[in-house]
């Protein structure tokens, strides 16, 4: 086996290794977390964050960046906690409308050749605005079935673990292994050639944004299932978390190089970082700073692997 392959493998393994390291550290600091109940608690929020990270990854795959994702997830959470609870039909229609809005955004960005960063920046105002109108003060209620799903207690393995594994595998097969996924990723790698081969770039962009919107909606629903209520800024942090998670998981900003499994692992790693820091009894002033430091550390390791790859 050539050195090149091992460096490549290392790169793929890096997210998993960082996850293992942080998990080991948590178990060491707080052995009680090494139980069904402990893991359930630790990974409580893993599902919505993983879904949001997947949503961001689909946008990254077509060389765009979504700076409105946190606001969007907040909005879908508000819709879930109000309309979907009170009048399910209206709620479903509204959430479907959200997915359509994302698809339309993809079309707009493609047709007018717009920078996604700025468009989504503007849209984040719009999403928060709608959310404020729907739910001016924190409140609402989670629909029973979502609540029931999110608090499932399957035997042996805690629900969040099963859920994120399922998410990772489904998206992996859908995007990385399917024949249709090839075209979607190809459009990120060399749009012109995909277009010359007879595919519509507009359709690709619309599809990717719609899928992203769909996972954004799922994220909002899952979040409400856990928190049982919502507010207009509930998922504000998800924009940055999702970008960082996807990058941590090996996705790149351009060229259609993404990894769904990595994205889910990256999201979970970031989530655990928070718990790890609180177990460390770190001065709370340094909590955010330490998260930044860990992100820098992992990226530094990736760089070292890349460098050894180049040398060999």
């Amino acid at each position: 086996m050539s050195r090149y392959l091992t460096a490549n493998t290392m790169r793929t393994l890096l997210p998993a290794l960082s996850l293992a390291a942080i998990l080991a550290a948590i178990f060491y600091l707080q052995p009680r977390t090494m139980s069904y109940f402990g893991l359930n608690l630790l990974l409580n929020l893993a599902v919505p964050i993983a879904l949001a990270t997947i949503a961001q990854m689909f946008i990254l795959c077509v060389n765009d960046l979504d700076l409105s994702l946190g606001a969007f997830v907040s909005l879908t959470a508000c819709i879930t906690a109000t309309w979907l609870y009170d009048t399910p039909v209206l709620g479903v229609l509204a959430l479907a409308g959200c997915v359509l809005a994302y698809a339309a955004l993809g079309a707009l960005i493609h047709l007018r050749n717009l920078p996604s960063i700025v468009v989504t920046l503007g849209m984040s105002f719009v999403w928060v605005g709608i959310a404020v109108l729907i739910l001016p003060t924190p409140g609402g209620k989670a629909p029973e079935w979502i609540r029931a799903l999110m608090t499932l207690k399957p035997a042996l393995i805690p629900f969040p673990i099963i859920a994120v594994v399922v998410i990772a595998i489904v998206v992996h097969f859908g995007l990385m292994k399917s024949a249709a996924g090839v075209v979607l990723r190809g459009a990120g790698g060399n749009p012109l050639s995909v277009e010359r081969a007879g595919w519509s770039l507009l359709k690709v962009k619309v599809t990717m944004y719609a899928i992203s919107g769909f996972f954004g909606v799922l994220s909002g629903m899952a979040l409400v299932g856990l928190t049982t209520s919502a507010d207009a800024n509930i998922a504000e942090r998800y924009t940055l978390l999702s970008i960082a998670g996807a990058i941590l998981g090996g996705s790149e900003f351009v060229g259609g190089r993404v990894s769904p499994i990595g994205a889910v692992i990256g999201a979970v790693t970031l989530l655990l970082t928070g718990s790890f820091l609180s177990f460390l009894r770190l001065n709370p002033d340094w909590q955010i700073g330490a998260q930044g430091a860990i992100l820098i550390l992992v990226l530094a390791m990736r760089m070292l692997i890349n460098r050894s790859d180049k040398r060999s």
Partner: peptide, 20 residues
Amino acid sequence: AGYRLILTGAIIVAVIAISG
């Protein structure tokens, strides 16, 4: 506040879309 946010965002997007 809600409408204000929506309009601010929509106008930013519209400006970008027109100048694109």
